[in-house]
Amino acid sequence: MREFRKRSLVKAICWRALATFSTMAIVYIFTGKAALSLGVGAVEVFVKMFLYYGHERIWNLIAWGKLKHPLAHLDVNRELEPEHMEELRKRLEELGYL
């Protein structure tokens, strides 16, 4: 199943909020500097959101590993065999559809 752009975008924003808060927390734990933690978060939130969105859109083009749609294998507009055509015509005629 393909995803619409809107879904990729919303996923990017959600994930970014989660990831940025956790990164800021880690930076703060390691350095104890609130300003640095906020600065890293402010830069990362935008840069990685765009990267994530691009990454999602590229993966969306790759069919490998995706569940195929149940109709994917169908040969749409397949013609019937001539003898089946004739039988079908007869059935439809019998009910007045032709």
Binding site: H69, R78, Y97, L98
Partner: peptide
Amino acid sequence: FTDVSSDTYQLRFPTFADLAVPTFWD
């Protein structure tokens, strides 16, 4: 129950394979 070919005007009979969108069962 029938369709017409735009080239030959011959009738054809659409079947389940011609359904262009998934059923709600799918």
